[in-house]
Design a protein around this nucleic acid. Structure first.
Lengths: 255, 255
DNA sequence: GCTTGTTTCAAACGAGCGTTTGAATTTACA
DNA sequence: TGTAAATTCAAACGCTCGTTTGAAACAAGC
């Protein structure tokens, strides 16, 4: 039962997002209607997708009236977005905070070298893993939902995700650029694209093609081991020698 | 306008899947009802997902009667699976054929070394790229649809994909194992998982987080250039030194 | 030409959908 | 305590869904 947060002093600053304290005990329910709807929606959207999940299914699972969903969130689309902002905003904020922490620590070092790729990858990965661990149920559901959303072509989903990620990604892009000054800018863009692919595929944990990775189930959920496997893989890919333009046809013509 | 197939003698054997010749001119329509439904379904499923795509939308786009979908395919689920088998069966067959071709060529070599990772990755990648290029419209649609399906938790989709991929993947798994004898079996499983992530993310081409890779649009569709970027990245990751169990906490505790 | 089997067609089936409404109920605060 | 705002509720609104049906149109073989 290794805990990420208690092991490291680096990530302690990332706590304190637990719950906004109810003002003047104005809410004495176990959990208020809005949150109950969000929780049910998160799980059901993950399980069936946006279109296949009806508001009736959500409100029934949340034990609230059907009209409560429209009353509190306006429409089904807005509810969907609320499910994302609730978790994505803090997670991406944590990523930026952790990256800044790492960079300050690196600067304090007498050598003052730029961050390694592994460190930057960790800064992306750890807040996501924290999310999947903190809320025993909701966090894992949300990451799977996120994995689905990445592949969803619905315009309102794509535009929403772009806005949610823009700040965080440009920041990490710059960090990778400093860590890999010899990689051309365009090549680096592609490699970050590949990194996001592995990352989302792994975090989504859809075990889609589970016949590939015949990991024992005990492995899943072992965040530390997972990062230990993923970070070297991605870092090595990021640092790989850039194929010269002269061996353009290598993979196609060589016999 | 660089063409994969015309450049290389290796992939010529993969042609000839164009169309089953109509027997005795029994069908003289431009294209028969079944195919028209499949084409429309492929595009619309890609665009809106399974649940959000109605049979009315499909049959209208295909210019056929609504009942024709149920008549020819039985149900909406069976139609969905038919869309996949039409393209996935030949593609995975091509992958196996190409891998075998590469392996025979390597054996013929006096040195008789096992295939490089890059070659094995090419054998996975080239048939997919061929698909995206051959049918100007349908192929690209299908790969995006496939990318969506990877992240879909619907049981009937997951079970279907597992069956479709089982043979091909165990074969490639063995090939990678020969190319990377020093990588532990379990570690290799995970790395193949990461490879599939990058691969599907890239092939799906959802340009989800397009703010990462600010490639000029001319790059997309340039199959050769894409493979030239992806193969070294993945190969380097596959070959990366395995993190020892002693530096388990490296990414978490090190400041 | 008639028969047999295949394919197309318009229409309808019951069910579930997102959203709205207006009244009932609960809450907040003077 | 009284009043106004916030929230919950049951019911209904039009609409679209996947599927079925039975007749019409078409094809092929004797």
């Amino acid at each position: 039962m290794t805990s990420l947060a208690t092991q490291s002093t680096n990530v302690t600053a990332l706590h304190g997002h637990a719950e906004a304290a109810p003002k003047l005990a104005e809410k004495v329910e176990i959990v208020d209607t809005k949150s109950r709807i969000l929780d049910a929606a998160e799980e059901l959207f993950m399980e069936h997708g946006f279109e296949a999940t009806s508001l009736r299914l959500i409100t029934t699972a949340a034990n609230v009236n059907l009209a409560a969903a429209n009353y509190h969130f306006g429409s089904k689309e807005e509810l969907f977005q609320a499910v994302f902002t609730r978790r994505l905003d803090p997670m991406n904020r944590d990523r930026l905070t952790l990256l800044a922490t790492f960079e300050e620590a690196a600067l304090a070092n007498p050598k003052a070298q730029p961050l390694t790729c592994e460190k930057i990858i960790s800064a992306m990965f750890i807040p996501a893993l924290k999310l999947s661990r903190d809320q025993e149920q909701g966090g894992k559901n949300f990451l799977r939902l996120l994995g689905r959303a990445y592949a969803d072509p619905a315009p309102f989903i794509r535009e929403f995700l772009s806005n949610q990620y823009a700040d965080m990604l440009s920041r990490f892009r710059a960090a990778f650029g400093r860590a890999l000054p010899h990689i051309p800018r365009e090549e680096l863009s592609w490699r970050l694209h590949f990194v996001m692919g592995s990352l989302s595929f792994t975090l989504a944990g859809t075990d889609v093609l589970k016949m590939i990775a015949q990991y024992q189930p005990s492995d899943i959920g072992n965040d530390e081991l997972l990062l230990k496997r993923l970070a070297p893989f991605l870092a090595a890919g990021l640092r790989a020698p850039v194929a010269s333009s002269t061996d353009k046809h290598q993979w196609f013509n060589e016999t």
